[in-house]
Amino acid sequence: MLTDLRNFSMTAFPARRLRVGSSTLTAREQPPHEVHVDAYELGDRCVSAADFHAFLRARPDDANHLDIDCIDPCFIVHRADGFALRPGCADFPMIQISYWAAAAYCNWLSQLEGRRVVYDLRSREADLDAEGYRLPTEAEWEAACRNGHPAELVTPGDTVNTADAGPACRRLRAGETLAGNFLPGQPAPVPVAGLPADAVGLYGMLGNVREWCHDYYGPYGPEFRRNPAGARKGSFRVVRGGSFVDPATDVGPASRMAAYEDTKCEVYGFRVARSR
């Protein structure tokens, strides 16, 4: 069963029109503008190291060593007999993966459920009309995040794993148990559902790891957009939600950053989405 192979569930969101962006954050979030998003489902938490490990063991040739880094800190290493999940790492978010490794995981889920795959990994193109798993567009991500977290910014404290998180949150960080060879006292991720869910039941949208979104990064415009899916081309992708290295003052539902799509880093993870 597929549900045995993954630890997240899908949360449904209706079609709607909403305002995205912000006039009070950085230039990247300006100008605020109206968008329409069709109905979709979003993973209630990030894909965990155990989730991703199931994919790597099942399809070891689908994510090559250019897409996943197995040098410290990391929750999955690669030994003579293949990818291995380090002890005590199962529930931490999958990190050290490129955008295209996340896309490969999405395709695997689609194939398991008999859905049409979204990504052509060879040509690096996506078919958003396919009903399979994919990364959320940044508008979908923001719409879901605003539902669960209406405030413009995070309040520093124990409920969000930002750089300035409180002591109860910091105690959950990987370094406190040396998970993945994160070291004690260093900023590090917490388990994907280690902190309380937001008002709509989503875990870890803000803080913890920046989440790969579908879109090529590009500046916003003022005009209404219907199902926006990013710039037409580029090599930088939108990442959302901030991370354990970002201060709370930089993290909110509207805040956006860009990351080179081949980057593998311990601050980038992802959650999956699919159209309804």
Partner: peptide
Amino acid sequence: YTVRNPESFDNATIFTADELSAVPY
């Protein structure tokens, strides 16, 4: 060949890896 930032190649930079790693890089 798998990393990109100049800092990752700096003579002073120290990375570590699981000592049973068998990888092409």
